[in-house]
Design a binder for these strands. Structure first.
Lengths: 361, 361
DNA sequence: TTGACATATGTAACTAGTTTCATCAACCTC
DNA sequence: GAGGTTGATGAAACTAGTTACATATGTCAA
C-alpha cells in the first residue's frame, strides 16, 4: 500500500489518490517498485540500473550512488521471476528425500539447506515416501517449476526419472550412496562397506547367530546394498533377516518377532538407528537385557544412540558433511558447469555399550 | 542461442544440424520449447495457446486438439518464471521453523508439504535455529524471491519481521501457537493449556514436588507460554525448572542435574518429548526407575514416546493436522484473499506407563 | 588537429508468458 | 436483408528484467 502510494505520488503526482485510500475498505496489496521506477527516480536508463545490480564496476561512481539512493528510497528488490526469465537462473534446487520423519534425512537436509543458502540458493524439499513413482512425479514438477539442480537419494530410480535427467541433463547428485561407476555423481558412503563394518564388529566380538532388522527393500537400494554387503562378507556365521518399517515402532515389532523365534540370536544388527532404538525398546518390553542377553548394533549414529541406555554401538554416517559436500558440488556444477566427481565418505564404528563379546557358555 | 538452433531444426527442417552435433564436444543442454514454438507448430497465435493452457473452455474443440498435440509433441511445459512475472503468482510459500532436528517440526512440515502440494504450491523450508534475527533475514529473502505466503512458528518475532509483514501484507500464518488476539491468524494449540494438561495430570496423581525440564526460553515464546501456563495453574505444589537444550542429550543432562539435587522430585514434567526421552535415558543411567522412583510426563507425543519403555505419558499435539490446516488456510488466503481466522487445536493427554500415582510413604 | 580507442550511458530488442482489444464469421431477430 | 449478438481467434501491448548495439564523451598519441 505505502509503496504504491509512494510510487504513484512520486512518478505521476496523483495526489487525488490519497482520498481514494479513504474509500477503500481493503488496503490494496501494494506493488513493489520495478527497474523502470528506479531508473526514473535516479534519472538514468533501465540499462544503467541493471548494470548497478549486476556489474557495478562499469558504472561511474556518482551515477552508481544516485542509482543506489533510488534503490534504497524505493526499497527496490529485483523480481526473481523476471531475472529467472532472462538468465535462466532460478536460484533454487530441489531435494528428493524419502521422508522427513527419520532424523538422518532431517540432519542431512539441515546441512544441505545451510550450505546452499551460503551459495545464495534456496532449497525446495520434496518427500517421496520411498516410492519411486512419486519420486519421479515430484522430480518432474521440480524441473517444471525451474529447479536448477536436484539432490536425489540413492542410485536406483524409475525409468521416468532417468529419462527426465537424460533429457534435461540437469545437474543432479546422488546422495546416501557411493558408487564411482554411477552415471550421476554420487556423494555418500559405501553402504555395503558400512554394513560390513557393523557386522565385522559383531563377528570380532564372537557373535555367530545374528538377526538383521532392516527397513523395506522395495524401492530402497541403500537397504538392498547394505544387505548384500552383509552377505558378501567372508564370514561363516548365520544371518536371519527381519524386514520391518523404519520407525521406532517397526524396530519394536522386529524385536517381538525375534523373541518369538525358538532360538534367540547372539546379536541383533539393525540397518538404521531408528530401528535399533525401537529394537532396544522392544527387547526391554520383553524383559531382555542389552547387551547381557543380546548385543545390539545400529547404523547411522543418530544423537539418540549416544544417549540411550545402554548407549548403542553404531556406525557413524557423516550426513552433515554429506549435506555440505552435496550442496557445494551442486552449486559449483550449476554455476561453473563443472561436473563433480564421485566422493566417498567413510563410515566410522562408534563402539558403545550395546555390543559386548559373546559370553562363552 | 541454443534455443535458436533447436527451434530452427524443428520448424525449418535444417537437417544439417545432425552433422553439427558431431562436431560439438558438449552435447548442448537442449532448451525447452516455448509458447511461440507451440503456436507455430499448431498454426495458431500465442494467445490461443495461452488460452488452451488457462481457459480451455473458450477454445474451439479442434483448435484445442491441434494445440494440445503440439504441446505434447514439443513436450512443452510453461515457464514458471514467465508465468510468475505476469500473474505475480510464484506458486510457492516459505516456512520458517526453528529446526528440522526435532521430529515435531519434521512431522509438521511433512503434513504441510503434502497438503500444499495438493494445492499446487511448493514449499521452501528455512530453518532459523531459534534465532529471531536469522528468522527475519530468511523471511526477507523468502519474500525477495517471491514467496506468496509464509508459515511462521510462534507469535513473538523481531521488529524486522513484523515490519516486513506489515509492509508487504503478505499472507502469513502463525503455527504452534494459538491466540485469537494475535494480529496474524494463529493455527495451533494453546501452549499454556497444553502444559497445564500435563501438570494437572501429575497433580491428580498426587505429585507435589515437580521438576520441569524445558528448552531455552530465549527467542521461544512457546516455551515461555507453557511455563507461564504451569505457574498460572491453581495448585499448591512446588515447581523447580531446569532449562536445557531441546535434544536427547539435553534431556539426559537435565536428569543428571535433577539427580544431583539433595531432594528428588516426585515427578518430572518435560515440555517436549525429545527432552522427556532424554530424561528417561538420563534417569536410567543414574539407576533411577521410571515410574517407580519418579513419574515422567512429556509434551508432543512423538512416535518414540509410545514405544519407549516405559511408554511415556504425554500430551498429544496434533501437528499433522496443524500442518494440513495451516496449508489449507494459507492456500485459500493466497488464492481467494480470504484471511483465515484463528484456529485452536486441542492437546490430548495420552496416559501411558511413565506416570503413576505418588506412593504414599 | 585529427584519428584511435576506452569509458560510460542510452535505446531498443530480447526472454516467455498473459491480457486487452480488434476483427471476423456465424447466427438470430426484426 | 440490415443490425445485433455471440464465439473464436489474432495482433500487439504488457509484465520485469537482461543485453546487444549504438552513441556520446574523454583521453592520448601521431
Amino acid at each position: 500500500m505505502k509503496l504504491v502510494t509512494y510510487v504513484n505520488t512520486f512518478l505521476n503526482e496523483q495526489i487525488k489518490r490519497t482520498s481514494n485510500t479513504l474509500t477503500q475498505k481493503t488496503p490494496e496489496p501494494k506493488k513493489r517498485a520495478n527497474l523502470r521506477d528506479v531508473a526514473k527516480v535516479a534519472g538514468v536508463s533501465v540499462a544503467t540500473v541493471s548494470r548497478v545490480l549486476n556489474e557495478p564496476g562499469v558504472v561511474k561512481k556518482d551515477t552508481l550512488e544516485k542509482v543506489q539512493a533510488a534503490i534504497d528510497a524505493l526499497k527496490f528488490v529485483p523480481s526473481a521471476a523476471a531475472r529467472a526469465i532472462n538468465s535462466g537462473r532460478t536460484r533454487f534446487v530441489g531435494a528428493l528425500v524419502p521422508t522427513l520423519d527419520n532424523a538422518i534425512f532431517a540432519r542431512f537436509l539441515a546441512a544441505l539447506e545451510r550450505t546452499l543458502s551460503e551459495r545464495q540458493l534456496s532449497l525446495i524439499v520434496a518427500t517421496t515416501d520411498s516410492d519411486l513413482e512419486i519420486e519421479a512425479e515430484k522430480a518432474q514438477s521440480l524441473v517444471d517449476i525451474g529447479a536448477e539442480g536436484l539432490i536425489i537419494t540413492g542410485a536406483a530410480h524409475s525409468d521416468a526419472l532417468h529419462d527426465l535427467l537424460n533429457r534435461t541433463m540437469l545437474p543432479a547428485i546422488v546422495t546416501s550412496f557411493y558408487d564411482a561407476e554411477n552415471p550421476l555423481p554420487t556423494i555418500g558412503y559405501d553402504n555395503a562397506a558400512v554394513a560390513q563394518l557393523a557386522l565385522q564388529h559383531l563377528a570380532d566380538l564372537g557373535h555367530r547367530r545374528i538377526a538383521v532388522v532392516h527397513g523395506p527393500v522395495h524401492d530402497n537400494d541403500r537397504t538392498r546394498t547394505r544387505l548384500s554387503g552383509l552377505r558378501a562378507l567372508p564370514w561363516t556365521g548365520e544371518l536371519t533377516t527381519y524386514e520391518t518399517e523404519i520407525s521406532h515402532r517397526g524396530g519394536a515389532e522386529g524385536a517381538r518377532r525375534i523373541c518369538s523365534q525358538p532360538q534367540k540370536p547372539d546379536a541383533i544388527l539393525c540397518l538404521s538407528d531408528v530401528v535399533a532404538l525401537g529394537v532396544l525398546f522392544g527387547l526391554q518390553a520383553e524383559g531382555i537385557t542389552v547387551p547381557d542377553d543380546v548385543s545390539l548394533v545400529g547404523i547411522d549414529d543418530l544423537p539418540s544412540s549416544a544417549v540411550a541406555v545402554p548407549a548403542i554401538t553404531t556406525v557413524h554416517l557423516p550426513v552433515s558433511q554429506m549435506g555440505e559436500k552435496a550442496a557445494d558440488a551442486l552449486a559449483r556444477w550449476i554455476s561453473d558447469q563443472e561436473r563433480p566427481s564421485a566422493e566417498r565418505l567413510e563410515g566410522r564404528l562408534m563402539e558403545r555399550q550395546s555390543a559386548i563379546p559373546l559370553r562363552s557358555i
